[in-house]
Design a protein around this nucleic acid. Sequence first.
DNA 1: ACCTGAACACCGTTCAAGT
DNA 2: ACCTGAACACCGTTCAAGT
Lengths: 227, 227
Amino acid sequence: MTPRTPAPRSRRERPAKPALTHGTIVASAVRLMAAEGLQRVTMRRLAQELDTGPASLYVYVAGTAELHAAILEELLGAVDLSPATAEGDWRDRLAQVLLSYTGVLFDHPGLAQSALVTRPSGPHYLALVESILALLHEGEVPDGQAAWGVDVLLQVATATAAEQSVREGAPDAEDDHDALVEALGQASARTHPRIAALGADLFSGTPQQRLAWIFRAVVNGTATTPR
Amino acid sequence: MTPRTPAPRSRRERPAKPALTHGTIVASAVRLMAAEGLQRVTMRRLAQELDTGPASLYVYVAGTAELHAAILEELLGAVDLSPATAEGDWRDRLAQVLLSYTGVLFDHPGLAQSALVTRPSGPHYLALVESILALLHEGEVPDGQAAWGVDVLLQVATATAAEQSVREGAPDAEDDHDALVEALGQASARTHPRIAALGADLFSGTPQQRLAWIFRAVVNGTATTPR
DNA sequence: ACCTGAACACCGTTCAAGT
DNA sequence: ACCTGAACACCGTTCAAGT
């Protein structure tokens, strides 16, 4: 029989197994998400990808929630913050930044949902917050209102993306929305006069149109509502 | 040996096993959630509770998402809509309705999160939407703005509850928030002048104070922002 | 025709036991 | 001291095979 001495194979093999660090784990998670979607980015699947056991990952990552937050922080590097320092109406530029942010979330169904609950706190997220605050400052929104308003703006942007993403991602969330449209359509004028009066207008507009209006409305509210 | 003839036991035994219908399943799910929390309301655990196999539940419930939506719809019966038809400032009464809604969600960590993605469409939800629309109408908010605004108001209320709930429910989501506070506190005045300028004010106020301001701000924005 | 046991294909997280 | 195999305790969903 051939000797079972494990032939001293070169340290790095075909997929060039990287050393485990927080950084390499997150980088691998981002690649995995791009390839298979967030739903496949689990501690176990990722461990498999990194050619190790799931327990090893817990040395560097606290758990699934932290992992997803780290992925989002990474992706936030793609948000275009340049409008914050450009020329033109500050409200338009604020909307541009927020739309760029929602754009990133739209591309990654599910990530927005986790972002509502586990917020990132890395440099890209800080830069986004700073840009929004700078634009509100430029618009002479009082500091106290800006401090609370930035939260609402990011929340509304994130929640809208979460809603849209999942509607796209999940096959039957569509039915779910249809059920609501149906239910609102059926509402009788006697029991639900306002729903009946508004009718189809409750669902009018493209997501883009609604999002643009929402941002304007929340910015206006922030600017004009004293604490 | 005693004959193994299965003694014809009375049809209904101790826990009075109910017939399986959508109604009995949802009722049982609500009880289970009250007893063990939403995280335990799974198709399998619920089937166990109902003394059957999970496959049987799929005859009456489309899946986990629909199940959670049905639970929420049930709980929405507890929302106090009476301010909608009471005396007084319409903005205050609208805030009362929204606070009652968030109250229900606050009591049930996790349900708010699922509500952001799978909206209920039952009678209790319709009644809530109708009440909000009626108050906006009373406040002479233009129809088109009210139609889109009701969505934003519910979204903001739900997202805020989701955020808070999870912070309470999950043990380490707290750290997560602390990490953000820490990160924002560390931000240098040179690289992040606005974050540095606002400082602790970014996190000031009780959740109640913030929520009250948020509702006023979004209502104001809705009332004053043309489409 | 209706219902469901059993299976398929996964999860997150922990810790005792190794190197 | 560090790392991880293996286990614990679960998931959602489907479908072939029974009654």
